[in-house]
Design a binder for these strands. Structure first.
Lengths: 238, 238
DNA sequence: CTAATTAAGTTGGACAGTACAACTAAGTGT
DNA sequence: ACACTTAGTTGTACTGTCCAACTTAATTAG
């Protein structure tokens, strides 16, 4: 192989390449995001700051960006997210003090898990209130989180994404509540129910959810369902 | 600065970082995409193949990914696109024979330009027919183009994106035709007109488009308009 | 045991926007 | 003058949401 030519075209500084994840879940009736605290060692940027879970692409272990994202999220949460979507990439000369860097951001939805901690020791859930999270995040992770929240909200307007935030069994009022938490506004009960039931997305179970009042029908997601798009658009074909 | 620690964390192989652009325009009543032919030199991957315009991030000249995309598109088209959106990133160990590589893909919309060539010598417009382009593309650029077409189509269903594909002055039937070209299906005339006129997106000019039949009202985009979203969603607030 | 309370789920009328189709309007060509 | 073509409008039907009231099924208080 003609190394002279090859070397000529590849011998220049390469940006750092990282992957970050924005992991959402519903906890205590509020939208939460998983953050990790950065190490405090010398030479570490943003020591002690909270940040999105992520890190450098390992060209040996990671076969692809998505594989890298899955690996990192598994390390932090212990589970494989039922929904993983690429959010975008952020790259500039200044976003990382260690040099020109580009990160590939993914966003994931986890079903509500019991309060039992199911994540690494340095990871913690933070409530998203008023579209923000309390601590100031490292790097440009605040921007990335903002973009993730915006993407989540806009998609929830016309998709069944919240289904991935639900436990295995849930009621329609449960599901509506999750929509309302993410969108931060109340929805019409009858229109919501009609829409969900028409979507062929969920199926009723034989059991009901007992409570101090009228029991609610339990549902579960139908198998192998990708998100449903509710788009009311120009002449829906067919 | 503690170089020992710093070196320890940054001294590992870095992926190649590139930016690619998917540039769409309407030409001859069809959707077209701009492609470039790859050089045939030794050590060049996919010599002679058609590919999306793009290339390596230059950590000296490019301050950010978007700046890099703008630079590359300007080099190929000579113009600054009125609409540039990040499409996503593709990265894996195998997509580039030169090594682990990640590309950041952008997609751009250009107004229909007169047949006068306004691009670099090695760039050419290709019609998108049946959601595809004739030549087999280099790298995974076929996948990227597919994703771009899908994104364009799905956004056109509920946004005013086609406005960025129009010349400065156009008629409502012109605009409807562009929607129909991208979506590859016919739209209802009266509903389309009502929707566009209600969107506060365009304004009529004093002149009409003359033709061999009834003249059509000319319009232009209102100043500084970001794309309009037509989303009919849950209880539109307000 | 009965009534109040609460949340689940249904029903019906008003309304908005689209689908479909027919219509009118304004130019050219013969 | 008339056919032809495309621009643009109008009217009826239909779909799905909005809004509000209603019924249903459980628990709890008296």
């Amino acid at each position: 192989m003609p190394m002279s030519k090859l070397k000529e075209s590849l011998d220049f500084p390469r940006p750092l390449t990282t992957v970050d994840g924005v992991v959402f879940a519903i906890r205590d009736d509020a939208l939460h995001v998983l953050l990790v605290q950065r190490a405090a060692g010398e030479g570490e940027p943003f020591p002690g700051s909270w940040a999105l879970p992520g890190g450098f692409v390992d060209t040996v272990r990671d076969n692809s960006l998505e594989a890298c994202a899955i690996r990192k999220l598994k390390e932090k949460t212990g589970v494989v997210s039922p929904y993983l979507e690429q959010l975008g990439s952020w790259g500039s000369a200044t976003r990382d003090p260690r040099g020109w860097s580009a990160t590939h951001a993914y966003f994931a939805l986890l079903p509500a898990v019991p309060t039992r901690d199911q994540h690494a020791a340095d990871a913690e859930w933070f409530a998203v209130t008023a579209g923000r999270v309390k601590p100031k995040l490292a790097f440009d992770h605040g921007d990335i989180l903002q973009a993730a929240i915006q993407r989540l909200r806009s998609k929830v307007e016309y998709t069944s994404l919240p289904a991935y935030l639900m436990p295995q069994e849930f009621t329609l009022p449960d599901l509506q509540r999750v929509y309302e938490i993410v969108l931060d506004r109340v929805l019409e009960k009858s229109a919501f129910r009609a829409r969900m039931l028409a979507a062929d997305l969920i199926e009723p179970l034989a059991r009901m959810r007992k409570g101090p009042n009228r029991p609610a029908q339990l549902y579960r997601l139908k198998k192998a369902k990708s998100p449903v798009y509710f788009a009311r658009t120009f002449n829906p074909p067919g």
